[in-house]
Amino acid sequence: MLITQLKPRETIEALTEGKKVFIINCHGCKEVHFPVEEADELQKAWTAQGKVTGILTTDYICNQENMELRLRKHMEEIQAADVVLVFSCGVGVQTIAAYLEEKKVCAACDTCPLPGFQGVTPLEYKCDQCGECYLNLTGGICPITACSKSLVNGQCGGAKNGRCEVDSDMECGWERIYRRLAQIGRLDVLKCPTQVRNFATDDDV
């Protein structure tokens, strides 16, 4: 089981301030607890302010074919938005970010683990349910699972020809992140404050 919980209100406000937003809610699998009411309340307030270009509420956005099919009907609304804000587990955000590769895709939730069945998620994108989603600082590519050392402040000096020092079959996660940020014109997020991981998060849930 997983729990998705809304990021702190000020974090979400900072991501969307003065911006047009397209919202994706994933009411996905039975294994995920989703903060339906809080998300709804927030989204209604934004709609009233006129900052929402569209809302798509669906399930299993981690299933790429299903997600693409549903997203295609909303492409104009997505184009009109500055940010696509995804209310889902970390896998969902990564799937959307990879599909909308030229769009700024942000996570509105943190994903935490609960004991039990982990749900059916595709293997290409991994979420460690670390409880402190970094996808907004990394262009939608997870540094916890895409980097062998799970570094959160940028690449180490170990990559050779773009490959990880641990596994030459694996691309350096931080080189992918750097490229993605350059592509969406968001290299400025690399200047964010020093990140120190919080390993206590899952105890607090």
Binding site: N153, G154, K160, L187, K191, P193, T194
Partner: peptide, 21 residues
Amino acid sequence: VSPCSDSVDAQLAKMERKVMA
């Protein structure tokens, strides 16, 4: 810092983070 890295721009970005830290 690794100045002859094949991803020198990413290295410079990391260097900047180290300076800021």
